[in-house]
Amino acid sequence: MWKVLVLMGAALTALSGCAFEKVQPWDRDLLAQDKMQLVPFPLDNFYDEHINFSKEAASGGQGVGGGGCGCN
C-alpha cells in the first residue's frame, strides 16, 4: 500500500511542476459545465458500478460508500 502511494505521490509531484497550468477562476467556465464533471451522470454510473460489481471480480477505485449488495 505505502509503495503505491509513494509512487503516485512522486509521479504527481514530478508532473505538477511543469504540466499543470494556473487556470484563473475567470477562465474556468468550461470546467464548470455539467458535462465536464468527473461523473456527469451519477445514476448511470451507479447502475454501471452495480452491474460490473455483480459480474466481475474487480471493484473499487472510483469512490467508497453507497451500500453493498448480495450480488457478488
Binding site: 503505491v4 503516485m8 504527481l12 499543470f20 497550468e21 468550461l30 468527473l38
Partner: peptide
C-alpha cells in the same frame, strides 16, 4: 480511498485515486 483531482488546463481535468 485516497485521491487527487487536478485541473490540468482550461479544458482538462484529471483524477488519480488509490483504494
Amino acid at each position: 480511498l485516497l485521491g487527487v483531482t487536478q485541473v490540468v488546463n482550461r479544458r482538462t481535468l484529471t483524477q488519480l485515486n488509490y483504494s
